[in-house]
């Protein structure tokens, strides 16, 4: 039997059968990325966003600085000031928020640390940029979300 297999190249022919069978276009697994966008999962950890309270349009962030402390890469800088007249007392309010996506490893620790769900890693995954400075997002960019250049025909 094994002599028969050897003599008539059965092993080789069996392999060729497998590759031949896969030529049917229905087996094609890849997609044409910019034309067809794959759906990403709900929990996907992509581009960060600072959420805004939909009711009053104010930011959800309470400037507690927890996300900055949680981040292993120390890439979040929360800018804040006190609401009181002398600037030293009163409620903290957010002034600026910078987030350097070029150093981020999208581990999600900051998102987990945030007590108000203000900081969220969204399903956007297109964050390419032409410059390093462009990878540092400020509060405005974070609230608006990424706006990647769309692929056009």
């Amino acid at each position: 039997m094994s002599l028969f297999r050897k003599l008539f190249l059965v092993d080789l022919i069996e392999g060729m059968k497998v590759t031949f069978g896969y030529q049917n276009p229905k087996y094609i697994y890849t997609e044409q990325y910019p034309k067809e966008r794959p759906p990403v999962s709900e929990r996907y950890r992509g581009a960060p966003r600072l959420n805004i309270n939909p009711e009053n349009g104010e930011t959800l962030c309470i400037a507690c600085d927890l996300c900055a402390l949680a981040c292993p890469e120390n890439l979040i800088v929360v800018g804040w000031q006190r609401g009181g007249p002398d600037g030293k007392t009163g409620k903290k309010t957010l002034t600026n928020f910078t987030y350097d996506i070029s150093r981020c490893m999208f581990c999600g620790l900051c998102e987990d640390a945030c007590p108000t769900d203000a900081l969220e890693l969204t399903q956007d995954f297109e964050m390419a940029n032409y410059s390093r400075e462009g990878a540092i997002w400020d509060r405005q960019a974070l609230e608006e979300g990424p706006r990647p250049t769309q692929y056009k025909e």
Partner: peptide, 27 residues
Amino acid sequence: LKIFENYCGARLTTHSFRIGGLQYETY
């Protein structure tokens, strides 16, 4: 990788477990 992505939101460097258990419940 799709299962990983659904479970914890990342495909390769998953950061799926935390000290003491899990961060994410199964979906």
